[in-house]
């Protein structure tokens, strides 16, 4: 379980997160949705322990992040964080990289070898597994980064925009199915960010809408529909909740008006 309590963060003067409170239950798949620059990545980074917030704290399975070396290392064993733009060791082959990451998280070697083979097959990288990562396309690099997150078998996954970065339709589908299955049958807690609602509609157990560093809404897609009175796709719900200004801007643009 992830527990975010009164989180405040600012890099400069402008607050990026303002008193954010959030609880994600075990086996739940939560999607952080929101426009760019609203604090989704920062919130995820705070959960991942990449940054120490100015105020508030994050607890993972009852342990507070950065409270002691022992607690932090215990949390790290259970949490994997995949940023939007990871850095990959370009001189190593995809297989080597995945094996190292898998072993880093303490999995048995034989198990990791088998898991790596299955992941490469899942993301259609078997033919490239033994080539250096520098020879991969952007989409393939994104896939290998996702594989690295999956190979850890961590019970908590924090994924920043996993569906962006040039994934092909097969990759998108594979990732969606895998995440669904991990959350539902293996009780893996997943928090991911996405700017696009359509992609995650069928995926999310609950959706947190982050606007101006605050959680504007946090509920299941059905409840969000009920609150907004919209019955269509999730995008309509989001339009009502957070893109109303965008609709007005579009109307102004075509009407030739300025605000």
């Amino acid at each position: 379980m992830i527990n975010v309590v009164d989180l405040v963060q600012h890099y400069g003067v402008r607050p990026v997160l303002r008193n954010v409170n959030l609880t994600v239950n075990r086996g739940e798949l939560v999607v952080l949705l929101g426009p760019n620059g609203m604090g989704k990545t920062t919130l995820l980074a705070a959960m991942a322990g990449v940054l120490a917030p100015q105020k508030g704290y994050v607890e993972i399975d009852g342990r507070r992040r950065r409270s002691s070396p022992e607690n932090e290392l215990a949390i790290r064993k259970r949490v994997i964080y995949l940023p939007d733009h990871p850095w990959l060791p370009i001189m190593r082959t995809g297989r080597e990289f995945l094996l190292s990451v898998g072993r880093l998280y303490g999995s048995d070697v034989d198990r990791v070898i088998d898991h790596v083979g299955r992941l490469l097959d899942l993301f259609e990288l078997t033919g490239h597994g033994d080539s250096p990562i520098r020879s991969y396309s952007n989409g393939q690099q994104k896939k290998i980064a996702i594989c690295a997150a999956l190979v850890t078998e961590a019970p908590v996954m924090l994924l920043d925009e996993p569906f962006s970065g040039g994934l092909d339709p097969a990759g998108l589908l594979a990732l969606k199915r895998v995440l669904q299955r991990l959350a539902s049958s293996q009780q893996v807690t997943i928090v991911l960010t996405s700017p696009i609602a359509d992609l995650v509609e069928s995926l999310a157990h609950r959706v947190a809408i982050v606007i101006d560093g605050e959680i504007a809404a946090f509920d299941t897609p059905e409840n969000l529909r009920r609150v907004t009175g919209k019955s269509g796709p999730l995008e309509e719900v989001l339009e009502a909740l957070m893109h109303s200004r965008t609709s007005e801007s579009v109307a102004r643009y075509f009407e030739g008006r300025t605000p």
């Binding site: 991942a48 290392l73 790290r76 990871p86 060791p89 990289f97 880093l104 303490g106």
Partner: peptide, 17 residues
């Protein structure tokens, strides 16, 4: 050294001390 390289953030958030 190269074998230890795991990129960002796998190395920094490694559960190994």
């Amino acid at each position: 050294q190269q074998d230890k390289e795991m990129g960002w953030p796998f190395k920094q958030l490694s559960p190994v001390p």
